[in-house]
Write a protein that binds this DNA or RNA. Sequence first.
DNA 1: ATGCATTAAATTGTTGAACAATACCGCAAG
DNA 2: CTTGCGGTATTGTTCAACAATTTAATGCAT
Lengths: 216, 216
Amino acid sequence: MNEAQGLGESLTEQVAAQLREQVTGGLLTPGQRLSEVRLAADLAISRNTLREVFRLLTREGLLRHEPNRGVFVAVPSMASILDIYRVRRMIELPALAQAWPRHPAVAQMQAAVRLAEDAGQDWRVIGSANMEFHAAIVALTDSPRLMGFFAQVAAELRLAFGLLDSPELLHAPYVGRNAEILSLLQAGRPAEAAAALETYLGESERTVLAAFARLG
Amino acid sequence: MNEAQGLGESLTEQVAAQLREQVTGGLLTPGQRLSEVRLAADLAISRNTLREVFRLLTREGLLRHEPNRGVFVAVPSMASILDIYRVRRMIELPALAQAWPRHPAVAQMQAAVRLAEDAGQDWRVIGSANMEFHAAIVALTDSPRLMGFFAQVAAELRLAFGLLDSPELLHAPYVGRNAEILSLLQAGRPAEAAAALETYLGESERTVLAAFARLG
DNA sequence: ATGCATTAAATTGTTGAACAATACCGCAAG
DNA sequence: CTTGCGGTATTGTTCAACAATTTAATGCAT
């Protein structure tokens, strides 16, 4: 079990990234139970290593661990979505309002906008680019802790998105807004950019909650 | 290895709590290397279980993991302290400013204040009570994500405190301020309470940074 | 002595098997 | 229909082994 080792990264972290992708990408259904023996066999790793991965992703909030019962894909609730958007406001708004318009992360924001604009109808790429845009906003703070925390929360949100029916409606309307926020920031008007982001988040939250309520 | 099982909690989490306490309590020196075989023997657990614990605490920021070299107790830097206080401001100030004066967490705040007042000269208890006070402030938000994030950051800060020489100076001056903040909140003046907390955090940060600079 | 390549020892990374402890499931009895 | 009981599957934890890598030691040439 040592063929395609990804240079420096331990197997545990590789598999963690892989599983993270599968969970947030919707390949694994929320609530689904993950059998240790079966999943270990599927991933071609040992059960012990898989348990290390489980501990990682459980702390990230993507998996839920019930003692002596197993681990399950976390199932997003209305409360968790409300909480996530609250955290996003608390982090993203000050980050943007206090931003230095020539911060390196602005380039990341621009790259994410371009990526979304050139993505055509591929909502998967659009969604990913959208999240990169907001991660770049948080990167404006130069705070490793905020960036890590946001990445975690963003992963949880992606998990919730995967539960909804029409994902294109959740991302597509916002690529234009991202571009607007970016140009406001580049024009040296961070306060207005933050204001635009606030309405953005409000609408996004409403959309997500509505789509969520439509499921029961 | 199944004598004093702590009712429901898995052994991994028990040991994680134990190690967390040892790290934040200063029993383990920052930078110190933690040998898997030796520590596993000391804790009377298997190496595999210990590795699960390592993964937990590494993600919490208390340990650092260098591939193929081992795990070390994280060593706080000036940058990390600055970052931590920035996060604290961002979380605690809005939490207090928007607080409902009759929120259940107010009781926790009060309990922490009393505990500190009755602690005499035991700076260990005072420091612990102080942290509980601020955790209670975050609990005012009813946000599980913010609470978890704060707990993590607070643990990192305790780790940094352990590095400093006169810990009583870091906590003792602030028990009075905590009481003041609490009474302002109970009096229905959360804005003023938040303002008091802001000066509190500013002074505390300056004190910590000064003590830290005194080490090199 | 100093610098450097090579070998040996120690440690981490990962696996597989084993067993205990717990939860799950079907079935019989009341 | 519920309760109690056993059998089975799964998780929790340990142990022993080996591969891979780092660290230390050794010896040699300068």
